[in-house]
Write a protein that binds this DNA or RNA. Structure first.
Length: 279
DNA sequence: ACGCCCGCCTGTAAGC
DNA sequence: TGCTTACAGGCGGGCG
């Protein structure tokens, strides 16, 4: 579910709600959510008593640094949610992990489809044990890149289609199915164009669109679609869906040229685009 | 290196 | 009212 803007919104919530608090107890009911750990006990014992020092983000991963020197890494997958709660609040369905803090209050991880996960690791192991994190590409919000470097890296993948390339987490970290479509529309580029085929001006437009779309989406606290699956720590939905120009707008008029937005499948994912102003 | 397909899960909506 | 199918913000792996 969540892409960079949603995860960044979650991270900011954690900074407000969780950083500085000490974990009193951890309850795990969904073993699949902590599947990298051999035992539940291993996960729990490395967290209980630890204080959360910082909340960082790399692409779609949230990384909480603990005062034990270890890191709690979270990935939401398609349907993961983190919610602030009180101990007396009823347990919602699909609640897999509950953190209770010494200062009171809880953080709960909910995840119907169970593609999300949490694990504790030491910083050095991030490269050895977690290659997918070590190999993440640049984060367009957290680590802005000079356009010259971007252009160079883009041309290092001359024949990959732009849509899969934008979604390749080892190339750029944080972009998924919604924001790749929005970025391509903003750039006026088709998702099946290749870096080799781009003019310098088109590369500039693409670069600017990546930065602008993601910053705007963060500003509006991400996108919440009709299923209401994505909400922040306090249950508040995002606003950015109202600014979508193509995603989930199949059959509707393009806001730039009035042509009809089309929906098609690419790599098994729905892709939305304007057949007239994306070239 | 790249494109395509599958599997991993559950819930929901649409179609018959 | 069922039952079946398709599809959903992610990712990794396997195959040609």
């Amino acid at each position: 579910m969540p892409e960079l803007p949603e995860v960044e919104t979650i991270r900011r919530g954690l900074e407000r709600e969780v950083v500085g608090k000490r974990i009193k107890s951890v309850e795990v009911s969904g073993l699949r959510s902590i599947r990298r750990h051999k035992t539940k006990k291993d996960f729990i014992s490395r967290l209980e008593g630890a204080k959360v020092k910082t909340a960082r983000r790399r692409g779609k991963y949230v990384i909480l640094a603990l005062d034990t020197g270890e890191l709690l890494v979270l990935h939401m997958g398609m349907s993961g949610q983190l919610r602030r709660a009180q101990a007396k609040d009823p347990t919602e369905k699909h609640t897999h992990v509950v953190f209770t803090f010494t200062q009171g209050g809880q953080l709960r991880f909910l995840d119907p489809r169970t593609f999300g996960e949490l694990f504790v690791t030491v910083p050095d192991a991030l490269t050895a044990e977690v290659p997918e994190l070590a190999e993440l590409g640049f984060d367009p919000v957290d680590q802005p890149l000079a356009i010259t470097v971007f252009a160079q890296r883009l041309l290092g993948r001359p024949d990959t289609k732009l849509k899969p390339l934008l979604m390749d987490q080892t190339f750029i970290a944080g972009i998924g199915n919604i924001y790749s479509d929005e970025i391509l529309w903003e750039s006026g580029l088709r998702g099946d164009r290749t870096p080799r085929s781009l003019s310098n001006m088109e590369i500039r437009r693409l670069f600017r669109a990546i930065v602008e779309i993601l910053h705007e989406a963060v500003k509006h606290r991400g996108s919440t679609l009709s299923d209401q699956q994505y909400v922040d720590l306090v249950g508040r939905p995002g606003d950015y869906q109202q600014f979508h120009n193509v995603y989930d707008r199949g059959g509707q008029a393009c806001r730039r040229c009035r042509a009809t937005i089309i929906r098609e499948k690419s790599q098994g994912r729905s892709t939305f685009s304007c057949p007239s102003c994306q070239v």
